[in-house]
Nucleic acid binder design. Sequence first.
DNA 1: TCCGACGATAAAAACGATTTTAGAGGCGGT
DNA 2: ACCGCCTCTAAAATCGTTTTTATCGTCGGA
Lengths: 354, 354
Amino acid sequence: MPRASRVTIRDVAFEAGLAVSTVSNALAGKDCVREETRRKVVDIAVRLGYRPSALARSLRSGRSLTMGVLVSDVSNPALVDYVRGVDDVAVREGFTILLGNTDERIEKQVAQMKTLIDHEVDGMVLISQHTEGKEVRELLKIVPYVFIQRRSPHFVDDYVGGDNAASTRKALTYLHELGHRRIGIITGPTASSTAMERLAAYRACVDDLGFDRDEDLVVYGDYDLDAGRRGMHRLWSLPEPPTAILASNDICALGVQDAALELGVSIPDQLSLCGCDDISLAGLRQIDLTTTHMPKRRIGTAAAELLLGKIEQGPNLPPQEIIIPGDLVIRSSCAAPRAKRRRRRAAAAPVAAE
Amino acid sequence: MPRASRVTIRDVAFEAGLAVSTVSNALAGKDCVREETRRKVVDIAVRLGYRPSALARSLRSGRSLTMGVLVSDVSNPALVDYVRGVDDVAVREGFTILLGNTDERIEKQVAQMKTLIDHEVDGMVLISQHTEGKEVRELLKIVPYVFIQRRSPHFVDDYVGGDNAASTRKALTYLHELGHRRIGIITGPTASSTAMERLAAYRACVDDLGFDRDEDLVVYGDYDLDAGRRGMHRLWSLPEPPTAILASNDICALGVQDAALELGVSIPDQLSLCGCDDISLAGLRQIDLTTTHMPKRRIGTAAAELLLGKIEQGPNLPPQEIIIPGDLVIRSSCAAPRAKRRRRRAAAAPVAAE
DNA sequence: TCCGACGATAAAAACGATTTTAGAGGCGGT
DNA sequence: ACCGCCTCTAAAATCGTTTTTATCGTCGGA
């Protein structure tokens, strides 16, 4: 099956009556070739429809203008915006993206990383991926990389993420002002540094703001609908249920809403709910979720830019951590708790929705 | 920045005291090399951590084990499942995916297609992309491809999509049985063959099932929230509004729900609503949308498999169109219209939700 | 003994570019 | 007249593979 053979630089050279190297230099805009010659070469190249083979070029030059993007699942709505952000700067800088799904499984991640390296990507962006493991660490030595949303507790890497501590604190402060003192939390997976940072911030607030300290209010969950449903059931079956819940993200919060409807619990009358991410659906009237905005696309672009810098400068410069702040978006899923709580200050601030 | 130079086949050959070609043949499992030799080679290759360069291999062999995937926006929830489906079979078959966003703009699409071809992808999957245009058509001649969700009216291509006509008809039949006779439709973009097929099926049903024939009931929209909102406003401002609405997809339907809440219109009491796709959120109690299920991930896998066949067999075999059927998923967003309509048979079937 | 075949390995060509080194003229300075 | 330098182009090396062709014993058969 000899596909219509491509036009090579050789053909252009022949047509122009020049050497291959001259054509190469001409097209690269090197100043060692006369302007007139250059123009002729360009003309002919265009006329013949010459397009240089990225493969051959990469092989020789050692740079592939290619970056790998690893994500646990491209169809996961909580992650796609990062990918898009990375792509934004990739195309802007003439890079092409090699995509891989890892399904949250480390052996898949390792396999994908190897594949990317085989394809000689210039760098990789790891979105919510495993940061530990001997093999992973070994592979990370080979090629520049940036982590998004998940960072290692043991190594200091290039990393871009949201300001998890601050945004959690904002949400909790808001709930505190509304008068809540008993707040449940459904965390993301324990492997997610983002989730753990939120949990840590929650715990700090329990002390700082004087919330009920009760380990039963912490449910270890995930970033999906089911975690929200299960978390809600668990928290609501407590002897003394919380008056507000912090969900791991908006999708999880939707799961909580769903379960609340199932249990006949009214939001925000009986229960306040706060998500995280601010997905576009959160603003719908049928959902109307108070949440902390995570500028994921911007995080993606920041990560890609960081990576490109890394690629440019070589592996010498020290790892950098970039934290992108996000704000609390107040909608109607939070309200003052019903007046049956025991502490003073029934409702501090009358901040309402929208 | 001479990155730690990779282990090449040359190194393996030297270590084994063999010729490069022998090593290549040994690793490829060719039978022209003694089993004992082969084992030795494999041993050494593993010991040295040899990984063949995909670039060099592709360059020489003319096959890159790579496929391009073009999508208008990876962060569009209506499209991500296709991508995931394609990826499923890609990894299974040892292919790597090159991803590109085109933002629904044909010049971006052309640019991306060129990039993919420069990278010598073995084929490409075009998800909801432009099918017309001189340049697009020219590029399609170069490399095998499969369209998903959008097909050309003028050319016959390899294509995989849902059964738009049948699923639309199912929804309309269901609404007819509930007693609806005046049904609005918010279409996807006119460039989307899928949307136009649904519209055609809608028009056929208007005749077959005896719905009100009224061009005002057709709103040309898109696949997003805003199209739903605008469509609802438009339809509800009609002198005689519809009793049911068919949305272009689930996201659009969510937009309709949102606008209905804004307008104080109760679903399904005053208005029945039917989406398309069956995204996971559609099953939530706060949404609970009746919709037609589109097995997008399966469509994606089917497309990738079709493409691989195309790559294998060469461009000789004729284009194939694969239609994947989907079923109506009945939830609570549709009900019998309020008893103020003029025709006989107030409510035919008492089919209820869930 | 010679020929052909065969089995195993080696050597060389090719893939399509970039990069390095070489060469050919022209020109100015001494 | 010669040297060096500069400008432009050519030739060759290189990237890391695969593929094609060559080599070299050995063995069987006539």
